[in-house]
Nucleic acid binder design. Structure first.
Lengths: 326, 326
DNA sequence: TTGTAAGCGTTATCAC
DNA sequence: GTGATAACGCTTACAA
C-alpha cells in the first residue's frame, strides 16, 4: 500500500510537505498542494492511522467493557455511546466480559497494551484491587476509589417508585433486587441506591415494614427458584418495586401464574424503561433511564480526559414511565 | 511509560533479547530471561501494541459495521461475534451506521486508515459501487460481487413457514416484509429469499394466490400506516408470514386491535427467534436464526483471511421455533 | 546466545 | 514555503 514517501517521490517534494498537505497544517503553496492532492488520488494513498498513533502517542480509540450487549438496556447504551464518541472523533472497541472477573481483567490488560485513550467500565465484579487508577477510566453505575463515574439518579428513582405505589394505595410493599453481592464479593454498586431511596421514601410516609428480597446477581435476567417461592409466600403484598424491568417481567409472570391480576391485585414497577419492541403484552410501569443522556455524560468525561481537564462524577436524571402494570 | 529500551538498559542486555523474552521467540538463556522478567515487573513495562502493529503490519482488530446494536437480534449477534473473535485473538471495533449510507462509507474509510485486519459489513445501503473489493470484508445477509458472505438459510426458513401454515390449514395467506429496496436503491439482500422460499413452497402445494405486501426498509421496527391499512383491508386472511419478529409483533398488535384472535383467527409466523426477555405476552412463533452459528461462520472466514487461505460463503441453518401465535 | 541496526509510516523541529 | 532528519517502540535479519 502506498505510503507518504511514495506520494512525496512521485510529486517531487519532501514528505514533510505531503504531511502538511494532508493535515492542513503549516504553509503549502497552492500549486504544490494541488499537485500533491492529485497524486494522492492517483496512487490511492490512505494515511496510516497506526503510524500516526505511534508518533502522536494517542490512537483515538475508546474501549467499552460491559457484561453483555444482549441485555436490551446495554445494547441501547452501547448504541448511544458509540454515536456520541464517533461525533467526538473516537472509535469504539467493544469488550463483552460475560460477567467473568478474569475477562474484565484480561481486557483491561489488553487495552493497556493497545494504549487506548479511555476505558468505559461497566462491571459488577470485584476488580477494584487490580485496577490501575492511572488509566483513564470512566465507570458506569459503580463507584471505584479515584475513578470518575456516571450513573442514573438511582436514589431519586427509588423515591419515585415509592411515591407512585403510595399514591396507588399500596399497603403491603415488597422490594426485589438482584444486586446482593455478598456471596462472593463485597462490591456495592450505585444500583443499590434504588432500594435505599425507595425504603427511605416509604419510611417518610410511615411505612416501615417492607419485605426486602435481595439475591446475588446472576445473568441479569432469570430469577432463582427460591425467590419465586418467597414471592408466593407473601400473598398479602399489593405493591412491588423491582430493581430492573427484566426482574419485573419475571415477577409479573410468576404472579399471574398464581392467579394474581396485575395491576388490580398487585402493582409492579420496574427500572430501566425505554422500549422493548418485541413485546406483545403489558408495558411495564418503570423508572426510566436515558441511555442518550448517560452516553453524553460518559463522552463528556472522556473528552475531558483527552484535554487533560479535571473530571467529575455525573448523575443523570431518571423519569417515571407510565405503563400497564402499576 | 516504560519502553523496551528502558527494560533492556536496566537489565544490561540488548533490546532484541527483551523482545525475544516477551514473545517467547528464539533463544534466551534461562538466567537472562528470568532477570528480564523481573525487571519487567519492576518497572511495570507493558508492550506497546501500536508499535508492534507498526512493525508487523497487522493489528488484530476486526471492525463490525452494523445498523444498530439496539435491535435485539443485532445485539445478540454482536455478543457472539465479539466472543468468537476474542477467542481467536482479535479485538472488535463496533461501528453503528444508523442505516445511513454516508456513515457506512465513512466508516469503511476510517477502517482503511486504521488498517483493520477485517471488516464485517451488515448493511442494506447501496454501497456496492464504492466498496474496495481488495479489503478483507465479510458481509452478513447480503451478496456483494467478490465479497464472501454469511447468511442464515433464509430460503429454507421461508419453506418452513409455508409448511407450518399449510399444516395448520391456512387458506388465505399473506406475506409482509420490509425489504423492498426499490424506492431509493436497487440492492437486494439475502433476506428476500425468505419470501421466495415461502412462495415457492406454497405454490408446490397448490396455493398460487398470496397477498404480498412489501415496503421499504425503515428502522427495522415500525410499520408505515398504509401497510396497516392494507392488512385491515384483507379480513379473509388466516395465515401471515412476516419477514421478522419485529414486524410480526406490530402485525399481531394491529390484528388484535381489530378484533382478530391470534392464533385462532389468524396464524402469524415471524423470523429471527431467540429470546426477548422483557415479554409479558405471547411468544411469537418464528423461524429462528442462530447468532452463535452465524458468529462462528463469520469468525471462520476472518481467520481464513488472516491465514491468507481461500474464503467461501457460508449458509447457516435455521430452526422452527414454536410459540403462541401460529 | 546475544547485540546492532534497519525498517515500519507518520509528525514535528529546524535549518535553509 | 520547503526538505532533511530525529523520534515514536517494536520485530527481525544478520553479525558476532
Amino acid at each position: 500500500m502506498a505510503s507518504i514517501i511514495d506520494v512525496a517521490k512521485k510529486a517531487g517534494v519532501g514528505i514533510a510537505t505531503v504531511s502538511r498537505t494532508i493535515n492542513n497544517s503549516g504553509y503549502v503553496k497552492k500549486e504544490t498542494r494541488e499537485k500533491i492532492e492529485r497524486i494522492i488520488k492517483e496512487v490511492g494513498y490512505v494515511p496510516n492511522e497506526i503510524a500516526r498513533s505511534m508518533t502522536l502517542q494517542k490512537n483515538n480509540i475508546v474501549a467499552f467493557i460491559l457484561p453483555n450487549s444482549t441485555h436490551l438496556f446495554f445494547g441501547e447504551l452501547l448504541y448511544y455511546v458509540e454515536e456520541e464518541l464517533y461525533n467526538q472523533g473516537f472509535k469504539m472497541m467493544i469488550c463483552n466480559s460475560s460477567m467473568q472477573t478474569e475477562k474484565d481483567l484480561s481486557y483491561i490488560d489488553l487495552l493497556k497494551k493497545n494504549r487506548v485513550d479511555a476505558i468505559i467500565l461497566l462491571t459488577n465484579n470485584d476488580v477494584e484491587s487490580q485496577l490501575d487508577k492511572r488509566l483513564p477510566i470512566v465507570s458506569f453505575d459503580r463507584k471505584f476509589d479515584g475513578v470518575p463515574f456516571v450513573s442514573s439518579d438511582n436514589h431519586a428513582g427509588g423515591v419515585m417508585a415509592a411515591k407512585h405505589l403510595i399514591k396507588k394505595g399500596c399497603k403491603n410493599i415488597m422490594f426485589i433486587g438482584d444486586d446482593a453481592q455478598g456471596l462472593h464479593t463485597n462490591v456495592s454498586t450505585e444500583v443499590s441506591k434504588r432500594r435505599i431511596g425507595f425504603l427511605e421514601e416509604l419510611k417518610r410516609n410511615g411505612i416501615d415494614k417492607v419485605i426486602n428480597i435481595e439475591y446475588p446477581l446472576g445473568n441479569y435476567i432469570y430469577i432463582p427458584d427460591y425467590v419465586h417461592e418467597l414471592i408466593q409466600s407473601h400473598p398479602e403484598v399489593d405493591g412491588i418495586f423491582c430493581i430492573s424491568d427484566a426482574v419485573a417481567a419475571e415477577v409479573i409472570l410468576n404472579l399471574e401464574k398464581n392467579g394474581k391480576k396485575i395491576p388490580e391485585d398487585v402493582k409492579v414497577i420496574g427500572f430501566d424503561g425505554g422500549r422493548s419492541f418485541i413485546n406483545l403484552g403489558k408495558r411495564i410501569t418503570s423508572i426510566g433511564q436515558s441511555p442518550k443522556l448517560i452516553a453524553e455524560a460518559i463522552s463528556e468525561i472522556i473528552v475531558k480526559y483527552y484535554l487533560k481537564e479535571k473530571v467529575e462524577n455525573i448523575i443523570v436524571p431518571v423519569y417515571f414511565q407510565n405503563g400497564d402494570t402499576a
